[in-house]
Amino acid sequence: MSKVEDIARELNSNFGVETEIRGDNSIWLEVKKDPLILLEFAKRKGFGHLSSISVTDWIEEGKYEVTYHLWSYSDKLLLNVKTKISRDDPVTLSAISLWGANAQIHERELHELFGVNFRGNLDPSPLFLEGWDKTPPFKKDFNWRDYVRKELLDKSNKREKGYWE
């Protein structure tokens, strides 16, 4: 059995999650509970590099999907862990205990752009948008075109006006 199948089976037997192997080196899975225990297990198994964390806003479902992309330098494998959290009260545990400042910075970005709260991450200060007090801008229900038209359009400028009409 190859290494990728080995790890997929181990994740399946330890956590009861469905795993999908794509290509020859990547595993995708979805967990129903908070993923921190699974992530901790993955890190012990060699997935030491937290490549990225991302959030997808499934607005119709009322859920945010948080995805962790991990890489193992020893086995040359990619592990993608997905979990869905409520969109109205988006809270999940921080991965700072596992990846320190690396996790901190990804979570800080997602807090700013989607409003997700990572419990245990104590520095949610904004990275990109100073003084922004409106809806987190990467949410699906934030319409930036409307926002620009209302707040920033210079009506006296003919060229700008033409662009929007």
């Binding site: 490549s51 990225s52 959030v55 992309h69 320190g100 400042a101 690396n102 901190q104 970005e109 990275l127």
Partner: peptide, 20 residues
């Protein structure tokens, strides 16, 4: 695309690494 997430190497190099 429904969602695109971009992971740039400098995001990690200029914040956690540089601060360290």
């Amino acid at each position: 695309p429904y969602r695109v997430k971009i992971r740039g190497p400098s995001f990690l190099h200029l914040i956690p690494v540089l601060e360290h």
